[in-house]
Simulated assay, not measured.
Amino acid sequence: MRKLIVAVGGSLVLAAPLAHADIVGVGASVSYWDSETSGQAASGNDVVDMENDLNLDSDSTTNATLYFEHPVPLLPNVRLNLTAIEQSGRGRLSSGYGPIVVGSDVTSDLDLQQIDLTLYYEVLDNWVNLDLGLTARDLSSELTIKQAQLGGVVVDKTEVDVIIPMGYAAARFDLPLTGLSVGGEINAIGYGGDSIYDVNAYGQYEISLLQLQLGYRQMSVDYEDGDDKLDIDIDGPFISAGLTF
C-alpha cells in the first residue's frame, strides 16, 4: 500500500542561500555498498529475525547519484539518488510467521529500492562546504519467505511502500592543496512512532574531474504499513567513483 507521510504542526523553512555556484555544475557517481541487514520484520503478531531466522546475505547493492547545481539565487539545486538492495538467505524459523509454522526451513529474499529527489541550497561553499535541503524518498521494500513442502510451496510476503519527506544535510571539509577531503550526509525523519534515517561518512580524493570515495553508510527503517512492519538496520562500507563537470 502506498502512503504519503506529511508532518503536521511543523515545517522546515530554508532561508535564502548564503552561497551559490558561480557556474552550472553537473556530477554523477556510482558506488558499491557491502551492506548487511539486521533487525526484525513483522506481519500482524508474527515476528521474524532477519539475521538469526533468515540468515540474509547481500546478493547485489547498487547506488547511483546525479546532481545539478546552478548560479541562480533562490532556486534550489537538484540531486537524484537511487539505491537498490537485493539479499537472500536460507534459515529456520524460531517462531511461526503467517502460514509458515515454527521450525520450518525457509528461503527468503529481501528487495529494497529507494529513489530520492533532493532540493538543496549551498549554505557554505569554500574549504568548508555545507548543503541543506529537503528529500522526497520513494521507498519500496518486499520480504518474501518461502517454505518448500510436499504438494507445493508456502509463501508469505511483508511489504512496505511509502513516499516520505526527509530533512537533508551534507558537509565536506577540504584539505587545501591536497585533493583530499572528508565529509558526510544525512537524510532523516521521525514521525508518529515511525522513523527513517540514512547517514554516511567518507574520505574523498579528487583529481581533475574524477572523485573517489571510501566510506561507511548506515540506513535504519522503522516503519509500519498496515499489518506489515520493518524495523531493520542496513550498514556497511562503500566505495564510490564519480565525475564532475
Rank of each mutant, 00 (worst) to 15 (best):
M1S: 10
S11M: 14
A16S: 07
D22L: 13
W33C: 02
D34Y: 11
S35N: 07
E36S: 15
G39W: 02
N52M: 10
D53T: 05
L54Q: 03
L56K: 05
S60N: 14
L66C: 02
F68H: 08
F68I: 13
L74P: 02
P76W: 01
R79H: 08
R90H: 14
R92W: 06
P99V: 12
V102S: 15
D109L: 05
Y120H: 11
L124F: 04
L124T: 00
V128D: 00
L130V: 14
G133W: 00
G133K: 01
T135W: 01
R137Y: 00
S140H: 10
L143D: 00
T144C: 06
I145R: 03
Q147E: 15
Q147W: 06
G151Y: 04
D161L: 03
I163D: 13
M166W: 01
M166A: 09
G167H: 02
T178V: 14
T178E: 05
G179M: 01
G183E: 03
G183Y: 01
G184E: 12
S195W: 12
Y197N: 08
Y197S: 09
Y197L: 04
E206H: 05
Q213G: 07
V221G: 07
E224M: 09
G226W: 10
D228T: 13
K229D: 05
I232C: 04
D235W: 00
P237W: 06
F238P: 04
I239H: 00
S240T: 09
